[in-house]
């Protein structure tokens, strides 16, 4: 496993061939993958409190033409969600993943599929999790609008505390919303 580029402050992974060794994957693909992952990170961070970082995984072969962009645990590479805050407290976890592929001319990286899950809870793994209603609009011009609401998700005993959360997250390039799961 190799990490491309120079910064190792965020992703600390075991290097088989040592840091700095060029990848078997095409450099253009790796560079474009990094750009896209960074762009997603900047876009999310511009809209919500966000301390994580999206990273791109690529097959280490010269014929590689696909990447997967998601937040990964630096050690285990487990794919992670990120927190969404309501009144300063983590109430929701959002999971986002993008599967991308070069076009045939290798001129642009197309998002083939993407996934967005929203789960009620403040931890990455919470056995008491609940899926909550989530409506997502996708638009080429406007990016993506994600509107979350919690009707019923908090139960009758908590109706007075039920938050109203409307949040707009723009993503470029525009993505296709994949079905769940």
């Amino acid at each position: 496993m190799k990490q491309s580029g120079v910064s190792t402050t965020f992703l600390v992974v075991t290097a088989i061939d040592g840091p700095g060794v060029s990848s078997g994957a095409p450099d253009d693909l790796v560079n474009r993958a990094e750009d896209f992952a960074d762009d997603v990170t900047r876009t999310i961070a511009a809209d919500v409190p966000f301390e994580d970082r999206f990273s791109a995984a690529v097959l280490d072969e010269a014929t590689a033409d696909r990447i997967v962009v998601v937040i990964r645990d630096p050690g285990t590479l487990e794919e992670l969600s990120f927190p969404l805050y309501v009144c300063g407290k983590v109430r929701l976890r959002m999971f986002m993943k993008f599967e991308c592929q070069w076009d045939s001319e290798h001129t642009f990286l197309a998002v083939e599929k993407s996934w967005i899950f929203v789960r009620l809870g403040d931890r990455e793994k919470d056995d008491g999790h609940k899926l909550i209603p989530c409506r997502i609009w996708a638009s080429v011009q406007l990016g993506i609008v994600v509107l979350l609401w919690s009707a019923g998700a908090w139960g009758a005993d908590h109706r007075r505390r039920r938050p109203r959360l409307g949040h707009r997250i723009q993503l470029r390039p525009p993505v296709e919303i994949g079905a769940t799961p």
């Binding site: 496993m1 491309s4 088989i16 790796v30 970082r53 999206f54 791109a56 280490d60």
Partner: peptide, 15 residues
């Protein structure tokens, strides 16, 4: 900023 990870076919299958 480095944000790409490359993995061999064998590593992926093992994982």
């Amino acid at each position: 900023m480095a944000t790409a990870i490359s993995m061999s076919r064998e590593e992926l299958l093992e994982r």
